[in-house]
């Protein structure tokens, strides 16, 4: 009596049975329906009916397109129906299973990133500390060279140009000036 009341199969339960029979339902939902089917013959019967139909439907493969159809469009498209070119193979490999291709690319990228990050600690066989030390020494050497250049510049400006170049030129110019002045005085007399 209890069973009969329960198994006026509701529309909602029927939909769930159909989904399970066609393999759409999730794992737990399938388990629930299987459990119900085991307990109640009405559910079992309905489930089996739909599952048999689903199996028959799923065994049907898409009909093959006749070659005549492909041959008939050759004059329009002006290309062969079949190809074995390298480009075609690449295209097929990449796009017939885009998810797999994407996964392969992601794995490849991950390998590259991983190998780069693993090698990051020692570059060309040198440790990070050695590289930092070398960097410091280079900076110190450059600072020394810079210091020498600035000293040279200041001595060139202050000492060499003033004492060794400007003064002799000034003296020479004064001598020449005096000579001109003397000559002018003589001419006036």
């Amino acid at each position: 009596m209890k069973d009969k009341k329960f198994f006026e199969i509701s529309a909602e339960l029927m939909d769930r049975i159909i989904s399970a029979a066609y393999g759409d339902a999730g794992f737990f939902e399938k388990m629930k329906i299987h459990k119900l089917a085991g307990e109640h013959s009405e559910v079992r019967e309905l489930f089996d009916e739909f599952r048999n139909t689903a199996n028959s439907v799923h065994s049907i493969k898409p009909d093959e397109c006749p070659e005549t159809v492909i041959n008939n469009i050759k004059p329009v498209s002006k290309i062969e129906s079949k190809s074995s070119s390298f480009m075609f193979d690449i295209y097929t490999a990449a796009f017939s299973r885009p998810a797999i291709s994407a996964l392969a690319v992601v794995i490849l990228a991950a390998i590259v990133v991983l190998s780069v990050s693993l090698n990051n600690g020692s570059y060309n066989g040198y440790s990070r500390e050695e590289i930092e030390k070398a960097n410091l020494q280079t900076r110190q050497a450059l600072a020394l060279v810079s210091n020498i250049f600035s000293k040279t510049e200041s001595s060139l400006k202050n000492d060499i140009l003033v004492d060794r170049v400007s003064k002799p030129i000034n003296t020479g110019m004064t001598t020449v000036n005096n000579l001109f002045i003397d000559k002018e005085k003589k001419n006036e007399n």
Binding site: D63, C65, S83
Partner: peptide, 20 residues
């Protein structure tokens, strides 16, 4: 072979049976 032709051939091979 041009890329367009390759694309077309791929599409034909892939979907001709589905279409028919």
């Amino acid at each position: 072979m041009k890329l367009t032709e390759t694309k077309y051939q791929f599409l034909i091979q892939q979907y001709k049976n589905n279409i028919y």
